[in-house]
């Protein structure tokens, strides 16, 4: 069974020979960058470089996917925000939004640009998905991601204001989220056309570390449902931080799989959502994968599998400085460990 078959069969609910080890989020490594002599900050605006770097984690370590992009700013940029890629730095920093779109409550009634599919880096992302698909698409599944509406809202306006308004004026926030859900659907459809096999919706802003499960259910979930109802390819809903109390809602969103991080008690979640639901997670991509020993990595992977994940998958983007021995130990453990 190839990695591609394994991942696609898993999504289809069919039998697989073993759990796949992949991700729906960024997983570029400094080893991969070294292989091509690329600088991290340069990847975000070049289809060939982005694709090479994304494919290198599969080429070097057998990590079972190819995922682009590496940053979280594509949708916000298409809406008109300015981003910072930190081109002046040698260190790896992920791009951030430097200029917001909404500056106060009165500006929340935004209109979606009619040419959203051609704005910002959306065309570049389409091109990149095509490039990586042609490169390794026969061997692994090609993934991409979009933000969830609440997380996107937190990028285009002050998070501080958004959070308070979620409490004080939920109707106003809901209206914005509804518009942003449409933006996300439009962008995701372009990615589908470009050949993405699966799309992860990253809604980390709605973690239970920040919002109550009740607000999640009433304010966020309806918009997530709308998005997943429109997606045709396989889909994953990712939320990091505390998620035990919202795991069932996450599944209710209509996503084919849910993804959680190391703060989730997988055994408990598995009990709650039943044995057949697809639950991806949940090793710590920095404290374990980068900073841990190979033995600690193996132990953690075994724990994920024992507790009942459907795929061994990181809690967030993999931090690029991951030691090669650690990622090799992870792949080896997934391939050889049997519960």
């Amino acid at each position: 069974m190839t990695s591609r078959e394994r991942v696609l069969k898993l999504f289809a609910g069919e039998k697989v020979d073993r759990l796949p080890c992949f991700s729906g989020m960024g997983n570029v490594t400094t080893e991969g960058l070294k292989k091509y002599g690329y600088k991290f900050a340069a990847l975000h605006s070049n289809a060939k470089m982005m694709s090479d770097a994304a494919a290198s984690t599969y080429r070097l370590f057998g990590f079972e996917c190819g995922v682009v992009p590496f940053d979280l700013c594509v949708e916000a940029e298409a809406l008109g925000c300015e981003i910072n890629v930190y081109a002046h730095l040698e260190d790896i920093l992920y791009p951030t939004i430097k200029k917001k779109l909404i500056h106060n409550e009165d500006e929340m009634d935004i209109v979606i640009p009619s040419d959203i599919a051609n704005r910002g880096r959306v065309p570049l992302m389409k091109e990149t998905i095509g490039v990586i698909k042609a490169d390794i698409g026969n061997e692994v599944a090609i993934g991409t991601y979009v933000l969830g509406p609440f997380t996107l809202a937190g990028q285009i306006m002050e998070l501080n204001d958004l959070l308070k308004l979620s409490f004080k004026k939920p109707d106003k926030v809901s209206k914005l989220l509804n518009t942003l859900a449409d933006v996300i659907i439009l962008v995701a459809k372009e990615y589908e056309k470009a050949g993405a096999d699966y799309i992860t919706v990253r809604e980390m802003g709605a973690t239970s570390d920040v919002l109550s499960p009740r607000v999640f259910k009433n304010l966020i979930l309806p918009h997530l449902k709308k998005i997943f109802a429109e997606l045709n390819v396989d889909s994953v809903l990712h939320i990091c931080g505390k998620t035990n109390d919202i795991a069932a809602f996450m599944l209710e969103s209509g996503a084919k799989a849910i993804s959680v991080d190391q703060k989730n008690d997988i055994a408990e979640t598995r009990k709650k959502i039943g044995k057949d639901a697809l639950l991806f997670g949940n090793y710590d991509p920095y404290n374990i994968l980068v900073a841990g020993t190979t033995e600690k990595v193996r132990e953690t992977i075994r724990k994920c599998i024992d507790e009942g994940v459907s795929a061994v998958w990181p809690g967030c983007d993999i931090w690029p400085t991951v030691p090669p021995d650690n990622i090799k130990a992870m792949m080896d453990e997934v391939k050889n460990y049997r519960r």
């Binding site: 959070l163 308070k164 979620s166 409490f167 239970s208 920040v210 919002l211 109550s212 607000v215």
Partner: peptide
């Protein structure tokens, strides 16, 4: 106790 979350915390801070 998870009775309050970040939005409440921010409003209390205000």
């Amino acid at each position: 106790a998870q009775e309050y979350f970040v939005p409440e915390l921010l409003m209390c801070a205000d």
